[in-house]
Amino acid sequence: MNFVPAPGFADPVMDATAMFRAVLAAMAHPGRVVDLPVATQAPLPLGGGLGALLLALADRETPLWLAPDMASADVTAWIGFHAGASVIQDRGQAVFALADKAEALLPLDAFSVGMPEYPDRSATLIVKVASLGEGTGLLLRGPGIAETARLEVGGVPKIFWQARDELSPLYPLGIDLILCAGAKIAALPRTTMVEI
């Protein structure tokens, strides 16, 4: 082993705090595009933004599933070194799942949606998208949104939104989604209704 992992957070405590606040703002305001306050030098295909999300949220208590387009020896080693999270093969057990492209996450119902008594025991999917922008695109409704919001998501096929929509009758069970484009994120918790 002569692998030297790329750096993680420069300031683990403050960087994690700032990252969490960004994620919390995104999750509390679905469809809002939030700037990530810090980045990491995580290897591709993981990349700086996803790497920072992972370090803020994941640790040895949270099994991760990497989509085939995300799994590489460098990425697995970086995650193992900085977050201590184990990468697992069974996506149904994953607390977080990461993908380079949204369609790599399909089928969505293979992830845990939680149990009726414990809907929190469900997966959070973190996926890279080509671009994020407010004002046009998907029409969003639900908690955290005053009336409606619009979110333009680049590079996600319609079939993905249809698959997400098929989970909505299961509420309060479901999966939560964090989209990341470069240094920007937006979140779509299970409560957000998406019209294409």
């Binding site: 994690a16 969490f20 919390l24 999750m27 803020a56 949220l57 949270t62 607390v95 929190d120 939560d176």
Partner: peptide, 15 residues
């Protein structure tokens, strides 16, 4: 903090 933060995010997702 990470454990609590994860709980908060799930709480926000399931009001």
């Amino acid at each position: 903090k990470r454990m609590i933060r994860r709980a908060i995010l799930k709480g926000v997702a399931i009001p």
